[in-house]
Nucleic acid binder design. Sequence first.
RNA 1: GCGGAAGUAGCUCAGCGGUAGAGCAUCGCCUUGUCAAGGCGAGGGCCGCGGGUUCGAUCCCCGUCUUCCGCUCCA
Length: 604
Amino acid sequence: MSEQAKGISLFRTHNAGELRMGEAGHEVVLSGWVQRRRDLGGLIFIDLRDRSGFVQVVFNPDHSSPEVMALGDKLRNEYVLSVKGKVIAREPGTVNAKIPTGEIEVQAMQAEILNAAKNPPFYIQDNVDVDEMVRLKYRYLDLRRSEMQQTFILRHKAVQFIRSFLDRNEFLDIETPMLTKSTPEGARDYLVPSRMHPGEFYALPQSPQLFKQLLMVSGFERYYQVARCFRDEDLRADRQPEFTQVDIEMSFMPLQEFHDLMEEMMAALFKETLGADIPRPFQRLTYKEAMDRYGSDKPDVRFGLELKNISEIAATSAFKVFASTVENGGVVKGINAKGCASYSRKQIDELEAFAKRYGAKGLAWMAFTEEGLKSPIGKFLNEDEIESIKRMMEAETGDLLLFVADKEKVANDALGNLRLKLGKDLDLIAEGSFRFLWVTEFPLLGYDEEAGRWVAEHHPFTMPMWEDIDKLESDPVSVRAQAYDMVLNGYEIGGGSMRIFQRDIQEKMFKALGFTMEEAYDKFGFLLDAFEYGAPPHGGIAFGLDRIIMIMAGRQSLRDTIAFPKTQSASDPMTQAPSEVSARQLEDLHIRLGQDVETVTGKE
RNA sequence: GCGGAAGUAGCUCAGCGGUAGAGCAUCGCCUUGUCAAGGCGAGGGCCGCGGGUUCGAUCCCCGUCUUCCGCUCCA
């Protein structure tokens, strides 16, 4: 038993942050951390924090013994403290309306320091501007901050809700292996060397994709898992090497019904946890429409600024860049930056530099000012053309039109991102609003220039749209998949598909991917075998839990929704992972380091 | 692999070719109604690391490492 037992003998009767006028007059025991100490000499105030919040504890000689006063004097930030005291209503002039517990305070009658604490490297408080590196190194302290705790409480509630929703709908939580087989398609695998099998490796799962399909073959019919996934690719603010999916798969349900169910889950989740009303059914856009109008397969539809295609006018114009781009199969698209005609040359140059990051060769512009058209390309366009463009772009005086002439992919990418930037810069996005949509009819295949062959855009078991199956051979690029993403505020929060469950279609798919059946068997033999034994029609989706929580919590970085995340170079400043291992460990694993790796320092 | 930004006290930052500063934090003293308490005082620095230029470099140049944002990548 700790020293504590000798003193107060009880850690807690109430949560500090939940005390209100209702408890006035009650004797309480609180335990937590010293948030802050205000020493007025004869009088000491302590903000005592626990998970629920904090309350002011007063050390006052009028009601605290000399021993208790002496203890109050010793307290420092982040000391762990147990206090027994009386809750009293504060004197009228001393009420603090800024905090939930501001109407009361606790008079310390007994107190005990359960643990001292070193001076923390940064303040444990919200909205601190501390370097991420420092926060991650002392993650356990960072996680003490209220806003971090709120995020993880939200995350917990969200997961609880999802689990119970899926349970009510007869989904079974089934775990799948973390040590599994490396598969050729997709992201780079994290590999785990095998000790028992020299020269062979497991892969950590990029997702439980194949296993959940096998569970459908097994007849579980409805499966879900809150599953950790691993991808060894470059990180971003919204991408971690290790992340969590809510992975769902089900049999015998038509696409539309499945989408309805998933919508219901998300809408109810947001209602339950945030009180947000999400209109249903969700908006739907085909992939093509999303690309045409927003230049993105995950459009943020909280604002307009849609892309317009002016290729037709551009094709016949005297502006060579426009005309030749269209002639060579490219497009000319633009967006209307409403009210930006007054942008300075410097501002426009910055927009151009931004567009160039996404491969655009330049950014043509037309500003309709009070004094008339200002544009470097104006002299190449006749009045009719200018009028047509103006009409097509829905431009008025005061607007700035921005154009990219390039291959369709580049134009969409550059303008799509420019649109997002302008949306932010021009403050067009209503904070706290949630706009869900489905993006459907993704292309089934994409051509991989490097590999010189067609690759599955989603994965090789994605069902083509029935009406496109015949084109698998003749016109692979135009084959659409029964694949879909759920998009929220410009983030892809989930993606999935209906799966191929019939042998002949699967063979056609592999053929389109340039695999022989032998090669296909080598890579996915176990799944193909399984499918010979009566695979039901099935499909599913995987939601990016971390990302959903990030949006729900209004955070900008995925790292704020993962308790122990990694830096951009996939390392952990706290544990120092990854790290070197001993020569002995490597030997057991039959691994010799390459010559480009500095000698491992012996750690036997 | 590439582009951009950053690295100076525990934290957040300023500085500048002549050996370093602020706010907060810490420590000491004072302080009975504070709640970002206040007052006085003190300690605290390989100016990320390695080279170069210079009489002299935290500052200029080159390289390198780390972090953040983005590109490539992420079925």
